[in-house]
Design a binder for these strands. Structure first.
Ligand code: FES
Ligand code: FES
Lengths: 144, 144
DNA sequence: CAAATAAAGGACAATTTTGTCCGATTAATA
DNA sequence: TATTAATCGGACAAAATTGTCCTTTATTTG
C-alpha cells in the first residue's frame, strides 16, 4: 500500500506529534529508536517532510523535530503520504495503465476508484493529532 | 497498491479469460502484445499463475494459456493477487509493524482495516469473467 | 521419426528502493 | 571564541523488484 519510506514517515510524524504535545523537540536518534526504524534512512525521510513543511526542524544543540502545536490538527496524513510517495496513489491506475482515465478505463476502474476514494478521504480527514492521542493513552503502538 | 508483476498478472488473466470465452488459447507473445507488457517478464508471471492453478497452460504447437470456461466465474481477482503478491496486502500492517494485530494496534489500525476489508471484499467478489465481459463490449481497455 | 512450436526454468542484467557513511552547516553554551 | 550537538546533503552500498536471454522439455504435425 505505502512504501517503506512512507510507513516510517507516518510513524515518525505521529511520534513527533505526540512529543510536540508536551513541548518536546525530538532528535532523529530518538525517533528511530522509538519507532524502530533505520536511523540514517529515517533522517532522509524527515528531511523530505521538513522540506514539504509537514514538520519543522531546528539545527544545532537543543535542536530536533517538532510540529507546531497550533498546526497539529491541520496536519493530515495525506500531507505526509504526498510528501513521500507523491500522488501516484491518488491518480494512478490500479492495473498500471499510463494514467487512470474514466474516459478509457481499465476493467477494474469503477471498483478500484471506489476503494481509492475511501482511502483518500481517510487520509485527508485523519490528523496527526488524532493519531497521537491514541498513543498518548496507551491504546496504540508505534513499534512491537 | 499492487506490484508491477501483479498488475501485469491481472491484465493477462483478464485477456486470457476474454479469449477463452471464444474458445481461443493464447500465447505469451500475443498476451504481452495485447496488454502492452514485457514478454519475458510476463512469461514468468504466467508461470506463477499456472503453478497456482489460476490459469491453465498447454505446451507445444497449438498450446498456450486458457481458463476453463466452467471455472471462469469461479476465478476471482484475489486468486491472482495472492498467487503473485502473496497475502501481505491482507494481513500486513498499514504502517509496517511486524504483523497487523488488533490486540496491539498501530495508530492507523482501525481506519486501515476498514479500507483493507473493502478491498478484500472487492477482490474476493470480482471474477475474471465479469471483468472480461466489459472488455468484450468495448467498455474497458487493457492498454492505452 | 524429424521438424517446428510453445511453455518451463535457470542464469543473468538493469533499475528502483532501501539503507549507510561521512563531511558540511547551523546554532547553543561554556 | 572553541566546543559540542544537532540537521543537511551528497556519495555510496545492499537488497528487492523488474526485466532479458537462452537452453530444456513437452507436444503437435508432416
Ligand atoms: S483506469 Fe485503471 S483504475 Fe482508472
Ligand atoms: S496494526 Fe497496523 S494496520 Fe493493524
Amino acid at each position: 500500500m505505502f512504501s517503506k519510506a512512507c510507513e516510517y514517515g507516518i510513524r515518525a510524524a505521529v511520534y513527533i506529534a505526540l512529543q510536540s504535545l508536551e513541548g518536546r523537540r525530538v532528535s532523529v536518534n530518538e525517533i528511530a529508536e522509538e519507532i524502530d526504524s533505520p536511523i540514517a534512512f529515517t533522517a532522509k525521510i524527515l528531511q523530505q517532510l521538513s522540506r514539504n513543511n509537514v514538520i519543522h526542524s531546528v539545527k544545532g544543540p537543543t535542536g530536533g523535530f517538532e510540529i507546531e502545536r497550533t498546526d497539529m490538527e491541520a496536519v493530515k496524513l495525506n500531507m505526509v503520504v504526498k510528501a513521500i510517495d507523491g500522488d501516484q496513489i491518488y491518480v494512478g491506475c490500479g492495473l498500471g495503465l499510463k494514467e487512470c482515465d474514466a474516459g478509457k478505463p481499465c476493467p477494474l476502474h469503477d471498483k478500484f476508484v471506489d476503494i481509492r476514494t475511501d482511502l483518500r478521504h481517510m487520509l485527508e480527514s485523519t490528523s496527526l493529532y488524532e493519531l497521537a492521542t491514541g498513543l498518548e493513552v496507551g491504546l496504540t503502538y508505534l513499534k512491537r
